[in-house]
Amino acid sequence: MRILMIEDDAETADYLRKGLGESGHVADHAATGPDGLSMALAGTYDALIVDRMLPGLDGLTLIKSLREQKVPTPVLILSALGQVNDRVRGLKAGGDDYLIKPFAFSELLARLEALARRGGAEDAVATRLMIADLEMDLLARTVRRGGRKIDLQPREFRLLEYLMRHAGHVVTRTMLLEGVWDYHFDPQTNVIDVHISRLRGKIDKGHAAPLLHTVRGAGYSLRAPS
């Protein structure tokens, strides 16, 4: 992936560039709002990382002008402002996801990959999702694996749907809490782990090749056996 970071803190930018490079991505860096805007307009990037507070031009205005110029590149907003209002404002301005500083690198990477993927494939209108022999019918709200029907509770269904839409990529616990429960805080106990192991019991039990994997230190990933 080609990624543009618009971030005024040199150390954060450096650490992000290294991290992204190690994960096989190429990252360009702009330190001010105006520079970032012209680079974003000129280059072809798979995703942008935009800090909210930038010298010259603040992040939200930058995103707004990008959207006005019909640049559809997905944007991940980074911000030290973590209040609900701030997040809503960021997404309204045209951001696609919002991450509060400080963050874990694995969290940023997972979100970035999810965003870039969303920017490419337009399967939002699909009525059927499929990973290997796991099949989800979004209209009938049924799930089958190897032709056998699996009974899921409504929330389990949404959890699986989220994982299937992000198949092949790492999904973090916070992404699941936000995407499936609409919670933007972390409950103390690792409740998500238990939900996942329940789901795993329903879709992977009795099958030789598991689909739902735990990615150590990062989250989960649903993928077809290679």
Partner: peptide, 19 residues
């Protein structure tokens, strides 16, 4: 209410109860 804070308070209480 502020939905998010309310939700977090309730999960805190349930969390305590479970623990």
């Amino acid at each position: 209410a502020q939905p998010e804070l309310l939700a977090q308070s309730i999960t805190n209480l349930i969390d305590n109860a479970v623990k």
